[in-house]
Each structure stands twice: as C-alpha cells, then as structure tokens.
Design a binder for these strands. Structure first.
Length: 823
RNA sequence: GGGCAAGUGGUGGAAUGGCAUACACGUUGGACUUAAAAUCCAAUGGCCGUAAGGCCGUGUGGGUUCGACUCCCACCUUGCCCACCA
C-alpha cells in the first residue's frame, strides 16, 4: 500500500470505524484504578468545526491518549453548549425551527470531530438543549431559590425597543443594538439574579489553591472580583436631616476633602435640587448625561462635566461646610454612587477642581518635594507621604493613617470600615426562547411559586413563531404560559424568561460523569470518582465568566452536600488563538481555513501534527498552508521507512553484545528520543516532541547506509509507532497492524521506558572557551579526568594561539560540557 | 492609568546560566526525469576574506558573572485583560 491522499482517507475512515465499533474509548468507573479526567471546553454548535476547535481538541486528544497508554482510566467526553441566540437569529432570518437548526449543526459538528479521530467516549455525549439535560438546570435553579441564591429584583437593564428584549452589555455596540441598530435605553425591569456575591470571599480566597492555573487567569479573576478595603464616611447635609455616604479607599486624605460629588442617578439628587435656583440647568445636565452611552461614560471618554447643586455637606472630621456637586465622572455602579473629592491627591478630582475653580488643600506631603504648594502643583500627588493639615494625625505616615483614621472614624461614629467588592450578582434571565425556562409560576392569588420538582422539566413548547419583535416569543404561546396554580388550582401564568446559557455550561463537567442518570442532577459516586477535572483546556476568552461561574456552582454543590471538593478544575491550559496573516481567524474577517478542506487533501493526522508542531500550546499560532505540507511529508517518510525497513519475519533477538559503534549510537538515540518525548508530552511541549521524532527518523535514514541490524531496526520501528501514536493515531494504528502487532489498538501497547545505561556515551564533546569565547571542540573519553582534559586543551595549537603570552588566571571546568580559560 | 504575556534568521520556532538559530517551512544549487510533480542530496544569520579564518549578532541601554537569549535594573515596542473603581 502506498501513502496517497486516497489511501490515507481510507486508512483514517477504517480506524475511525473500528474505534467506534469496538468502543475503544468507552470508559467506566473502576474503583481502585487511577483515573484521569481530561476535558476541553465544549463547543457552541454553530455548524462546522473551525481551526480553533481543531487546535483545542487536538491538544486534549494527545493528552488523553498519552494518559491511556500510561495506564490511566481516562475520561474524555464531548458535548454541545447548544442553547443561545444564534439559533434564534437563524430562526428569524431563515424561518427555521431553532431546535432543528441546532440539531443539524450538532450533526455536522460531530461529523467534523469524528473525522479528526478524537478519542471521545461518545456514550457520554450531551447537548444542553436536551430536556434530559436542562431539567437539571431547573432543578439547580430551584435549589438555589430555596436558599435565597436565586432571586428576582427590579433593576435597570439594557433594553432594545426594536427587538423588545434585554441585551447583555456585550450586545450593546456604541449605544446601539448589535442586531437592529436601534438606540438602547436603560429600563427598570424585574429580573432574576444569582447571588454569586455570597461566595465572593471563597471565590477570591480559593484562587490560591489553583497553583496549576495560568497566572494571568488568576489575575483576571482577582481583578474581576475586586476586593478593596475602605471606609464608608457619612457627610451630613447642612440644614437637612439627610446623609450622603461615600466610599473611599483613602481615608487618610479625609482632611483634604473640599467638595462632595453625587452621581447624576443618585437617589438623593432629586430631593436635594428640588427648588434650587439652577434647578432647570441641573435637570438639563442630568438628561444630557443620561443620553451619553453608558460605555462612553465608563471608559472616561465622555465629559468630566459637572454642576453645583447649591447645597452643602459637612465634613465630619472638621465640621467644614463643603459644596455638593453632580458630575458624570461619579458612577452609580461603583461604591455608593457618591465620592468625597480630594483634588490634591486624586488626579480626576484635581482636573475637575481646576476646571470649575474649586478649592484645594494639601494634606499629604511629598517627601521628594516637601515645599510643594497648591500653586506649584501640576498634578495630584497620589503616592505615600506624611500627613499635614490633618489635625492630630499630622506627621503620621499616610499608609499607617489609612488604618488609624479608619479606626478613629469608626469609634467617633463618623463612618465604618468596610470591604467593597466589584463583583455584582449575576443577571441570569433573558427574554428569549432558545434557553432553559425558569421554573416559576405566578398566581394572582397565591403569588410567585416554584414549579414542583416532580413536574420538571418545564419543557420548551415547539412550533413557536420567532420574529424578533414583540418581546419574548414564549409570551405569545398560550399553551406554555397558561397553567394551573400548584397551590389553589386556579389560573396561573408561567415565567417566560429563560436562563442565560452560562448557566448551562457552569456544571456540564459534572454531568459527564453520569450523563444518563435520570433521577439525579449527577451521580455522587461517579462524581466522587471522576472529579475533579485533571486537565481543562480552552480559550482565554473564558478566563473570567465561565470559569468563575463554574467555580461558584462547584462551591454551591459542595454546600448542598453532593460533593466534597470545592474547585472543579485542577489544571488549566489556555491555548493560544489561531491567526491567519497576523489576524485572528474569524468568519467576520473572512480569513478562515476550513479544517475539512485540509483533511480532504492531507488527512486528519497531518492536520493534527501540523497544528501541534507549529507552536507551543499557549502561544498564538500563525496558520500556514506550507506547514501542512511539511507534516504530510514527514508522515510520508515515516510510513515509507517502516514499510520498507521493518521485517515482520525476522525473529532474531536483540543482543547488545553484538553492537558496533553505529548500532550503539542508534540505540542511544532511540532511548534518548523515548526520554525526550515522554518528558515533552508530560509538559505539553508537543512541538519539541515532534522535532525529536524527526531527528530520530533523520538518524535512522543515515544508519541505513552505515550498518544494519534487523533486530535494532525492528525495535526502532516499534518504538517510533508507539511514540507517534498519540499525535497521528490513524497511521500508527495502520502501521502497528502491518508490522504484525497483536494488540487490538496501539493504545493497548505499553509506553516504552528509556534505559539510562543506553544513554551513556563513550566519548563526550568538550567545548573550549577562552574568556568565554568558543575556541575549540574536543572529543574526549567520557572517563577523562579534569587534569587530562586540561592537558589536552592547553596542548591545542589553536587554543595556544589565543593564549599567546598571556597567563591563564583561572581554569573553569564544567564536567562533560566545557572548559573556560580566563586570561 | 493598572495587571499579564511577548520581542531570537526570509518565516514558524529551539535553547532557562555553558557551542545562539535545533526541528521545520521557504529559497538556491544538484541528482533522477523527454519534461513536470514527487522524492533524494547539498547549501542557507550579517559583514570582511580566494581561503584558512576573523569580527558582529537574540528590541534598546546599563548591571551581575569566568561565561547572559536566559538572572537583575531602567526604557522602547506589540498583544491581551481590566479600568473615571473613588
């Protein structure tokens, strides 16, 4: 048989069918046997797989196969994150049923995955849009609601009047709806939230346990959770009973406060400005700010404008009356929606005070410029320093003062020390059709009630018309909405909101452990055996949301008593993106390369090899068609070498006593390659593992001319096939069968071990340096002493040339490697 | 503004204190061929030199060291994440 495109397609199809028929990768729990759970982030089934999937899943597949041959019981499942907007958009655009559209995409996707030859246990395949899956979403939701972790409250959300639905922040592009371009407005709506903030301390603290996660992901999560220590300080309104509470992380600057700022949306604003002279101007200003997009305001591109309210507040530490302003740079979303302004020690306050000619006072003296005055100040001094103009705290270091003033204010009841979290509760409800229905019922008499557990799942109705107009499609579906009240039996309405799809993906890794369980969210025994996920692999774009939600759910399940661990993913690998011509490969850029077209021409093994060889897993990968050619050429050479050199009928024993110099060297290289590939696979350095296999093949080709001992060649062929198999499984299965391997699959063959003795060399090359510069190379017996080496090196004519009349000051000897002569 | 990566031949990359550019792509030359493809062989960082050989060279500038792509300090550039965060 030759290795042509036609043949390789036959070989790949043949082995894919064998793996499927024999259920080669089906696994079951085996108490007492070491398990390994390798998982890649499951795909949204948008149709064909793309290069990003290929890269992600090939990395995972090599790890899975490597762990299998090392004797682990390996769980390697695959499924589909199948709810979500694209299905609804397709429905609106092409008048197709979202379920049908999704399932046909899943079929395409599965086909693509199978053509890559991935080692999935297909018995565990799941799709989140399957009622057998999403009923457990509803169950989890009910459990959360029971504990007050799922709740409903009114809050301002992004609302598109065109589509009549809420939008996620990411769906608002420059203040407009990403789909219909209508201007997005803020609207107060009753929405479901998950109280993730109840876990903020644990979510932050447990990041320390994740020592095998990339630093940047840890940093991003820390940043997102955003714990900051500070003080809530109360400013009494002059002449009124109300109090403005501000949050600050810099209580040490309290004596420098010269005005107070409220966010335009602050609840006190209306009462405060009612009837003041410039009331109309204030209303105009607030309306102006409201018109500015939220995103423009938050990025700081907008304004830094403000207006005086005509009212005064009292600084509790010194009784000073200070102006109250309204400004767009103060955000309602953060802190208390009110800030104390210290222009001398906060750059934003500094610019604002300059613009509106507001007073300033230095309260922290810069040790580098102790004579600084307000007149000479060109920007705020935000660093550490010594307190001045601060009453009894004068002379104290500002770092120490943060704590001391906080304590003092607490004692004097001027404020409280507090911890502020950036993390907000998670808005989970969507006015969409293609998602998990939230299992609640509203009765006019009895109020809001959860659906009884035994009534689950609340299934999505079929044959819904989706137009993109008129709000949630479920609202118009009487057979879904109209129901009986579980308490009084009277007419009631179902909740028509569905869950955001991040809910679905927050726990799927647990469901894989027992996907067919019909009575429980997941089998606790199976979860205890398989979890935690030993290696999780996916894109950096999920560094915050998905991974944070998954951690939250795991902690919740632990509190429910279902599991006894509190982090789901032991080790995390974030693979780099696939680029084409320096840009991320994407449909919108139109620079995608279809994996199927590559498989069609070169086969899956070449694609797998090429994508692993081109770059280390975490790095960006620049796609090049030429690189596939190289992979193809290499596999070709492997195939022809083994076909041509392996002798199936040869039965002689390998005897190291008969080895001549060449044999010994080739044998050494075989062992060195085993060692290198094993180490590289363990550290996911697939590119260098592949290069070491290429080096071995290059040596094997040269050996052909020098000497040939069939026993050694046979050994080399066998070893080579096993080492290459995790990367290029189809061709290696075929070759293993051709050389007469008795095992059902090359996956059943034990991984080779290297022999340290075989790695030893009789002679070693010693590098000679003079003053750190390379001046000679010597092949010296490995047994030579330092003294002998010194004599040899010093006797060398070329080395002498560089020594000339100078004397050797120092002789540095690194055993087996080099000598350096310092003159 | 804050955080995290990264910067090495024409290209992807290797080397984590000890021969810089492994391995591959590309290019050039050669073999085979009527020819092409495929395959095989050889060369391939820059400068000087007929050659032997020498000098320079891992973003920039310093430092530590017998020795630095590698460690330390400062800076520049690029990418990603966060950000009027009080």
């Amino acid at each position: 048989m030759s290795y042509t495109t036609e043949e390789i397609k036959k070989i790949e199809a043949k082995w894919q069918k064998i793996w499927q028929d024999r259920e080669t990768f089906k696994v079951d729990m085996q108490e007492g046997r070491k398990k390994y759970y390798v998982l890649e982030m499951f795909p949204y089934p948008s149709g064909k797989i793309h290069m990003g999937h290929v890269r992600n899943y090939t990395i995972a597949d090599v790890i899975a196969r490597f762990k299998i041959v090392q004797g682990f019981n390996v769980l390697h499942p695959m499924g589909y994150d199948a709810f979500g907007q694209p299905a609804e958009n397709a429905a609106i655009k092409n008048d197709v049923d979202p379920a049908q559209w999704t399932y046909s995409c899943i079929d395409q996707m599965r086909g693509g995955l199978k053509r890559m030859g991935f080692s999935y246990d297909w018995n565990r395949e799941l799709a989140t849009c399957d009622p057998r899956y999403y009923r457990w979403n509803q169950w989890i939701f009910l459990k959360m609601a029971e504990r007050g972790l799922a709740y409903k409250k009114a809050s301002p959300v992004n609302w598109c009047p065109g589509c009549e639905t809420t939008l996620a922040n990411e769906e608002v592009i420059q203040g407009e709806c990403w789909r219909c371009k209508t201007e997005v407005v803020q609207k107060d709506l009753e929405q479901w939230y998950l109280k993730i903030t109840q876990y903020n301390e644990k979510l932050l603290g447990d990041l320390k346990k994740l020592e095998y996660w990339p630093d940047r992901v840890i940093a991003m999560q820390e940043n997102w959770i955003g714990k900051s220590y500070g003080v809530n300080i109360h400013f009494r309104l002059k002449g009124k009973g109300d109090v403005i509470t501000v949050f600050t992380t810099r209580p040490d600057t309290i004596f420098g406060v010269t005005y107070v700022v409220l966010a335009p949306e602050h609840p006190l604003v209306e009462g405060l400005t009612n009837g003041v002279d410039n009331e109309d101007d204030i209303k105009k200003f607030i309306a102006e700010v409201a018109k500015t997009g939220k995103s423009a305001r938050q990025t700081g591109e907008a304004g830094k404008g403000g207006i005086f309210t005509g009212q005064y507040a009292v600084n509790p530490v010194n009784g000073e009356a200070i102006e109250i302003w309204i400004a767009d740079y103060c955000l309602m979303e953060y802190g208390t929606g009110a800030i104390m302004s210290v222009p001398t020690h906060d750059q934003r306050d500094f610019l604002f005070a300059k613009k509106y000619n507001l007073p300033m006072r230095i309260v922290i003296s810069d040790p580098q410029a102790p004579d600084q005055t307000i007149e000479t100040m060109s920007c705020a001094y935000e660093e550490e320093g010594v307190l001045v103009n601060s009453g009894k705290f004068d002379g104290m270091n500002s770092d120490a003062a943060v704590c001391e003033i906080g304590k003092w204010m607490e004692k004097e009841k001027m404020g409280e020390m507090t911890v502020h979290w950036r993390l907000r509760d998670w808005l989970i409800s969507r006015q969409r059709y293609w998602g998990t229905p939230i299992p609640f019922i509203y009765c006019g008499k009895c109020g809001m009630m959860p659906v009884a557990e035994e009534q689950l799942p609340v299934e999505l109705p079929e044959n819904i018309t989706i137009t993109g107009e008129g709000g949630s499609p479920l609202n118009h579906c009487a057979e879904f909405v109209d129901t009986a009240c579980p308490k009084c039996g009277g007419g009631a309405r179902r909740e028509t909101d569905t869950m955001a799809t991040f809910f679905d993906s927050a726990w799927y890794y647990l469901r894989y452990c027992s996907p067919k369980n019909e009575t429980q969210v997941f089998g606790p025994k199976e979860a205890a055996y398989w979890m935690t996920v030993d290696q999780y692999i996916g894109g950096i774009e999920h560094a915050i949301l998905h991974l944070l939600y998954s951690r939250f759910f795991t902690k919740f399940f632990k509190d429910l008593g279902l599991i006894d661990f509190d982090e789901p993913f032991h080790r995390l690998l974030t693979q780099g993106m696939v680029l084409k011509d320096g840009e991320v490969m994407s449909k919108s850029k139109g620079n995608t390369v279809d994996p199927d077209s590559i498989i069609e021409k070169y086969g899956a093994d070449s694609l797998r090899l090429c994508i692993l060889f081109a770059a280390p897993p975490e790095d960006q990968l620049e796609w090049s068609n030429g690189a596939v050619d190289g992979a193809w050429k290499f596999l070709n050479r492997v195939y022809h070498y083994i076909e041509g050199r392996y002798d199936k009928d040869f039965s002689g024993e390998l005897s190291e006593n008969d080895f001549d110099c060449e044999d010994k060297e080739l044998n050494r290289q075989i062992h060195a390659t085993v060692k290198k590939v094993t180490e590289d696979f363990s550290h996911y350095k697939f590119n260098t593992a592949i290069s070491s296999l290429m080096i071995l093949l290059n040596h094997a080709d040269k050996y052909k001319q020098a000497s040939q001992k069939q026993a050694l060649i046979n050994k080399l062929c066998r070893t080579f096939i096993i080492l290459l198999a995790p990367i290029a499984p189809h061709i290696c299965e075929e070759l293993w069968q051709e050389i007469g391997g008795q095992e059902e699959s090359v996956i059943d063959v034990a991984w080779p071990e290297h022999d340290e003795n075989a790695l030893k060399q009789d002679t070693v090359q010693i590098i000679a340096q003079v003053n750190g510069k390379l001046r000679g190379k010597f092949n010296i017996s490995a047994k030579s002493s330092e003294e002998e080496i010194r004599r040899i090196v010093l006797a060398d004519a070329k080395v002498q040339e560089f020594l000339k009349s100078k004397s050797v000051k120092k002789f540095i000897y690194v055993p087996g490697k080099l000598v350096n002569l310092v003159v």
